Computed example of a mutant assay.
Amino acid sequence: MRFDVLTLFPGLFEGFLQQSLLKKAIDAELINIQLWNFRDWTKDKHQSVDDTPYGGGPGMLIRCEPVFDCVEAVQAESQQPGKLIMLTPQGRKLDQNLAEELSTEQRLLLLCGRYEGFDDRISQGLKPMEVSIGDFICNGGEVPAMLIIESIMRLIPGVLGDEASAKEDSFSSTGLLEHPQFTRPREFRGMEVPEILLSGNHQAIAKWREEQSLERTRQRRNDLLSGEDLHE
Rank of each mutant, 00 (worst) to 15 (best):
P89Q: 12
F182R: 00
F136H: 12
Q18T: 05
Q90C: 02
K93M: 12
M191F: 09
L160Y: 08
D51Q: 04
G11V: 02
V143M: 11
P128K: 02
S165N: 11
E65K: 05
L98R: 05
G134R: 12
K167C: 02
V193H: 07
L17R: 06
N37Y: 06
M129F: 06
F16G: 03
S226T: 15
S151N: 07
R107T: 14
F3T: 12
S173Y: 05
H179V: 02
G227Y: 06
L225M: 07
R216F: 11
N139W: 02
T7V: 03
I205V: 08
G57D: 11
Q106P: 05
E187M: 12
V193Q: 15
I137Y: 04
F136G: 12
R216N: 10
E116K: 13
Q80N: 06
R2L: 09
I149V: 01
V71H: 02
M153T: 08
L17I: 08
G141R: 10
C138P: 13
I152F: 06
N139Q: 15
I205Q: 10
Q203P: 01
E116D: 04
D44C: 01
R63C: 09
F68D: 14
P194R: 01
L61K: 07
R209V: 13
E65V: 01
L160I: 09
L197G: 01
D40A: 00
G200A: 11
S48Q: 15
E101R: 11
L87Q: 06
C112Y: 00
E150P: 05
L110C: 07
A73P: 01
E192N: 15
R154A: 11
L102Y: 00
S170D: 04
E150C: 01
E29G: 00
N201G: 03
P194Q: 10
Q124H: 11
G82K: 05
K43P: 00
A164K: 12
I33Y: 06
S151T: 07
A76V: 01
G200M: 15
G57H: 09
P53R: 02
C64F: 07
E65G: 04
A164C: 05
S103P: 10
K23L: 15
G82M: 10
D120T: 12
L87F: 11
P144D: 03
I85R: 00
P144T: 13
P194K: 02
D69N: 05
A99G: 05
K127E: 14
K127F: 07
D69A: 03
L198V: 10
D135R: 04
K45V: 06
G91K: 05
G91R: 03
R107W: 15
I156K: 03
R39P: 05
S132T: 14
A145N: 03
R63W: 00
G11K: 08
S199W: 15
F9G: 09
L230W: 06
G11W: 02
